[in-house]
């Protein structure tokens, strides 16, 4: 800051040039860091998704993405904007196990995004994994930290739809215990699964006629 009060004011051109150069250098730096971290970030996201799919579909070791495109479900690696996808899970012999279906909806504080495993043949939810949530620490975050709650989504009947009931009062195969102190978050999870399920059930092919695993699909990596 050598330009003191008695020094002549710099010309407008100099001001413009200073900001332009600063902006240019900053832009180059940002593009540089974006380009250099993008492969890692994409790989991280793909790995997280793959791990979540394998977690909600026990026994699955290969996956294939299916996209709802032009009113039909097709196997595709790419996902356009505004398109929805489910992930087919296959065991090591390439036998179809179930779908991992992502869903999202309002929770107690913000959107809860989750993934659940579903087998159309028996109409069972096989597992549930919360992918994103900003639920209250210590209370609402039990929807993914409470092993009992997460575990209750294993082999849970979804026909008729899942109902969250007060802890210790489950009597039907489609009922689960709501978390004490986090009833709203628990019910939000159940509502998201029910809604996503009813949205997708019409689109999925009838049980037994699931598309086979494409040979080139591999383990989704």
């Amino acid at each position: 800051m050598n330009t003191g009060a008695n020094a002549a004011a710099p010309s407008s051109l100099r001001l413009i040039l200073t900001l332009a150069i600063a902006g240019l250098i900053s832009g180059i730096a940002i593009i540089g860091i974006y380009e250099s971290t993008l492969p890692t970030i994409t790989a991280n996201k793909a790995r997280e998704l793959r791990e979540a799919v394998f977690k909600v579909l026990p026994g699955v070791s290969q996956m294939q993405q299916f996209v709802w495109r032009g009113d039909q479900l097709i196997a595709a690696e790419d996902l356009q904007k505004d398109e929805e996808a489910v992930y087919g899970g296959y065991d090591e012999n390439g036998e179809f196990v179930g779908y991992a279906i992502p869903g999202a909806g309002p929770g107690f504080q913000d959107t809860i995004g989750l993934l659940f495993g579903f087998t159309p043949e028996q109409q069972l939810v096989l597992g549930m994994e919360v992918l994103e949530s900003r639920e209250t620490p210590g209370l609402g975050d039990k929807i993914y930290k409470d092993a009992d709650f997460v575990g209750s989504f294993s082999k849970l009947s979804i026909d008729p739809e899942i109902v969250a009931v007060k802890k210790g009062t489950t009597s039907q195969p489609n009922e689960i215990d709501a978390i004490t102190g986090a009833t709203i978050s628990s019910k939000a999870v159940v509502r998201i699964i029910n809604k996503t399920h009813s949205d997708w059930i019409q689109r999925l092919p009838p049980p037994g006629s699931e598309p086979p695993l494409r040979q080139d699909a591999g383990d989704g990596s």
């Binding site: 800051m1 050598n2 100099r14 001001l15 900001l19 600063a22 900053s26």
Partner: peptide, 19 residues
């Protein structure tokens, strides 16, 4: 600091910080 004209110093600081 000797190259940044004081009229645009805050903008320059913000560009640097944001980067």
């Amino acid at each position: 600091r000797n190259w940044i004209p004081k009229q645009v110093r805050i903008s320059c600081f913000i560009i640097i910080i944001a980067t």
